[in-house]
Every structure is written in C-alpha cells, then in structure tokens.
C-alpha cells in the first residue's frame, strides 16, 4: 500500500480545478435556474427570489427553443451518418492496400481539423457567397445561404472539418487489428470487400461508437458555425440552435432562464450520449 501523500499530489490539482470549473458551474447553473427576478412596481429595484421550477416551465413552453432542438436533431440525423460513413470509407480505403501515397492522403484529409470552427465557417461563408465563390456553377443555381439550404451549408462546414479527425480514429483502430485475423480470412477465401464488411467493421465498432458519441455531443452544441453564418445569411436567427438560444437569452440578460436552458441542454446531451453508449454496448455483448 502506497502512502497517501503522492496520491494526493497526483489527484488534487486536477481534482480541485475539476471541482471549481466543472462541478461548481453545474451546481450553480441548477441553483440559478430555480430563481427568478422580480421587481417592486414596474421600475422598482430588481431582486432575485426563489421561483421553483418556473424557469423550466418557461423552457418547455418556449417554441423557438424546441424548434432549434428539432433543427439540430435533424442536422445530426443526416450529418453524423454522412460524416462518419465517409470517414469509415476513407479509413477502409487507406487500410486496404489499394491506395498508394497513404501518407499524403492521410495528411490531406486531416488538415481541415487544424482549422478552428469560426475560421472554417468564415471561409465557407465566402465560398458560398454568389459573387465571390469559385463554385459559380453551384452558387448561381442554388442560394446556399437561403433559409432552405443554410442548415445543410453548415452541415458541409462541420463535415469538412471533422471527417479527417474521425477517419484517423477509425484508421488507427484498423491498424491495431492483428495480421493473423486477415490471414485466416484470406485462407477462407474472403475478398477485400468481404474482409472489410465482416471483419474490419465489426472489429472497429468501438472506435465508431466513440466517434458517434462525440459527434452527437458536438451537434447539440452547434454554436460557432451558426453564429458566424448570421453575418452571411439573414435566415439564421438568434435562436437558430439551442446554444445560440442560451447565448442570446443571457445577453438580454435573463440569466435565470438562460441557466435553465443550459441545464436542459446539458441533461439532454448527457442522456442522449449515455443512452447511445448503453444501447451499443448491450448490442456488442450478444
């Protein structure tokens, strides 16, 4: 048994910061969300009083908020599978031995990940603008910044940034598969497609699950892209995504309601990713 001191030395610095900047804000947000601001008379001084679940009632009655939740869910249902499908396909191609110049491709696909979401959104915002875009064949026929298409224009930005990152995670998992597994498959007469489908994909499932969870979390948190696109397109409102709602509510300022939005959003994210993890790990046991 090691003495306590070194363990405290290792755990305490992170532990204290985690408590101060993760646990405390969660607690504080919950507390704030249970209060409300009242005024004596119309112009009297404001003070905070306990409001119970009143803010949550407002959250649940807030139409634009739930519209924004629906919007990011729709976004996620389409964008996450497309992005991860592409990432998986590219990882399998890199791993298949069919492709020469692996180093180059791996790097080329990964470079967009080095570009911050805000900067990527600014770049694509220009690329979508009809009078500046190099893709005039596309932008003259479709207005990518219109109300109908702007959500998918943003989905493209997110996909562009994150495919390479997800590809690398899956690719590293593929590299970790022992060679003997393939030898057995070759002896059984399995071709490259068959090997990919029946051996590789099941073996890298944990990596795919991990990337899916991170993508779900990321989707619900969409902020930088819509916030930037507000300058390019009037179709993006101040409540376009849940996080934008939180931000615009807090700049009113209505901190109590914004805190309630934050709590609901964090809880929804947590539940969704946790459920997905549980669901997939149960599937794996069978």
């Amino acid at each position: 048994m090691t003495s306590r001191k070194p363990i405290l030395f290792f755990v305490l610095p992170f532990g204290l910061l985690f408590a101060a900047f993760y646990l405390a804000p969660i607690g504080y947000a919950i507390k704030q969300s249970l209060y409300k601001v009242t005024r004596t008379g119309t112009f009297g001084p404001a003070h905070e009083v306990f409001g119970g679940l009143e803010q949550y009632q407002r959250v649940f009655q807030n139409g634009p908020f739930w519209e924004s939740v629906g919007r990011v869910l729709l976004f996620g249902v389409v964008q996450v599978p497309v992005m991860l499908g592409l990432a998986l396909l590219l990882a399998l191609l890199l791993d298949s031995g069919l492709v020469r110049g692996k180093r180059f491709f791996r790097l080329a696909f990964f470079v967009p990940y080095a570009i911050p979401g805000v900067v990527a959104a600014i770049m694509w915002g220009f690329l979508y603008s009809p009078n500046l875009s190099p893709f005039t064949a596309v932008t003259s026929n479709w207005n990518l910044l219109s109300a109908d298409l702007v959500l998918w224009a943003m989905a493209n930005v997110v996909t562009w940034v994150y495919v390479g990152y997800n590809m690398l995670i899956i690719y590293s998992a593929l590299l970790a598969i022992p060679q003997e597994v393939y030898e057995a498959a070759t002896i059984d007469g399995a071709g490259p497609w068959r090997t990919a489908w029946s051996i590789k994909i099941p073996l890298v499932m944990p990596a795919i699950v991990l990337t899916t969870v991170f993508s779900i979390i990321g989707t619900l948190q969409l902020l930088a892209e819509p916030q930037v696109f507000r300058t390019f397109s009037s179709a993006v409102s101040s409540t376009y995504t849940p996080n934008l709602t939180v931000y615009s509510t807090s700049s009113i300022p209505n901190f109590n309601l914004a805190a309630a939005f934050s709590v609901v959003l964090a809880l929804a994210t947590f539940v969704l990713s946790f459920t997905f993890l549980k669901f997939t790990s149960r599937g794996g046991d069978k």
């Binding site: 985690f18 993760y22 504080y28 996080n243 939180v246 959003l265 964090a266 994210t269 947590f270």
Partner: peptide, 24 residues
C-alpha cells in the same frame, strides 16, 4: 467515484458550462 465523475465530465458539453462560469 473520481473516475465516474470524470467520465461524466467527458459527456457534459463544455459549452453548457460557459454561462454558469460567467455568472460565477
């Protein structure tokens, strides 16, 4: 306990913390 808290922390989006951090 610490490990489970940390794991939970992975699933809590950082953006949800921004506003309460500002208030604190």
């Amino acid at each position: 306990l610490i490990f489970n808290l940390v794991l939970g922390g992975v699933l809590v989006p950082a953006t949800a913390l921004a506003l309460p951090l500002f208030l604190i």
